[in-house]
Amino acid sequence: MHGRTMLLSLVVLVGGVGVARPELAELPLRLAAPAYDAVTTSSIRNLATALQSHALDAGGVEAVTVEELAGWGWVPQDTTAVTIWVGGDEFRVVAQDVRPGASAFEYTNVGTGGGPGQVGVSSVRVDEPVAGVTIRPLTGG
C-alpha cells in the first residue's frame, strides 16, 4: 500500500511539474531525438540518391518533383521538414524532424560537379520546423 502511495505521489509531482514547466513535459521527446536524427540522416541519404539518379536520367534536377523522387525510392517522412535547393545537376538539402530536440542535417553536392556529396549537421536550425517538402532554385550556392 505504501508503494502505491509513493508511486501516485511521484506521478502527481511529475505531472504538476510538467504543467508548471512545459519544457520538462518535452523531456521524454528530447531524449528520443537521437532516434529521430538517425531516421532523418537515413532519409536524407536516400533523397540524395534519388536526386542523383533523377539528374542522371533527366539531365538535371531543376524541374524535379516529390512524385518523381518517389519513383526513385524516396518518400518524405510525415514528421520531417525538408527543403531542397536545385540547379543543373547540383542540389542542397536541409532536413529536420519536427519533434523537440531533433537536429537539422544537410546534404550537398554543390561544387562537386554533380558527384557525390556529404551529410553533415546543418548550421541552419529552425526552431519550430513544419513537416513537408519545399523545392527551391539553387542560386549562388
Results as ranks from 00 to 15, higher is better:
H2T: 14
H2V: 13
H2W: 07
G3T: 12
R4V: 12
T5Y: 03
M6E: 15
L7E: 15
L8W: 03
L10T: 14
V11C: 14
V11W: 09
V12S: 12
L13W: 03
G15A: 15
G16Q: 12
V17S: 12
V17W: 10
A20I: 05
R21T: 13
E23L: 07
A25Q: 12
L27D: 00
L29M: 10
A32D: 08
P34S: 04
A35C: 00
A35I: 07
A35P: 00
D37L: 07
D37M: 06
A38W: 02
V39P: 00
T41Q: 14
T41H: 02
T41G: 03
S43D: 13
S43P: 00
S43L: 08
S43W: 00
I44F: 01
L47R: 01
T49I: 13
T49M: 10
A50M: 06
L51V: 07
L51R: 05
S53D: 15
S53N: 15
S53W: 06
H54M: 08
A55M: 07
A58H: 12
G60E: 10
G60C: 11
V61D: 13
E62G: 14
A63C: 00
V64I: 11
T65V: 02
T65K: 02
V66C: 03
V66A: 09
V66M: 04
E68P: 00
L69C: 04
L69M: 09
A70C: 00
G73Y: 05
W74I: 05
V75N: 09
V75K: 10
P76W: 03
Q77I: 02
Q77L: 14
D78F: 08
D78V: 11
T79H: 07
T80D: 12
T80E: 13
A81E: 03
A81C: 00
V82K: 01
V82M: 00
V82C: 00
T83Y: 01
W85G: 02
D89P: 01
E90R: 12
R92Y: 04
V93G: 01
V94M: 01
A95N: 02
Q96T: 02
R99S: 11
A102F: 01
A102V: 05
S103W: 04
S103G: 06
A104Y: 02
A104S: 15
A104F: 02
F105A: 06
F105T: 04
F105E: 03
E106S: 08
T108A: 14
T108V: 05
N109M: 10
V110F: 13
G111V: 14
T112H: 07
T112V: 09
T112D: 08
G113K: 12
G114N: 10
G114W: 07
G115I: 08
P116I: 13
P116F: 14
G117V: 04
Q118K: 12
V124H: 03
R125G: 00
R125A: 13
V126M: 09
P129S: 04
A131D: 06
I135H: 03
I135Y: 01
T139S: 15
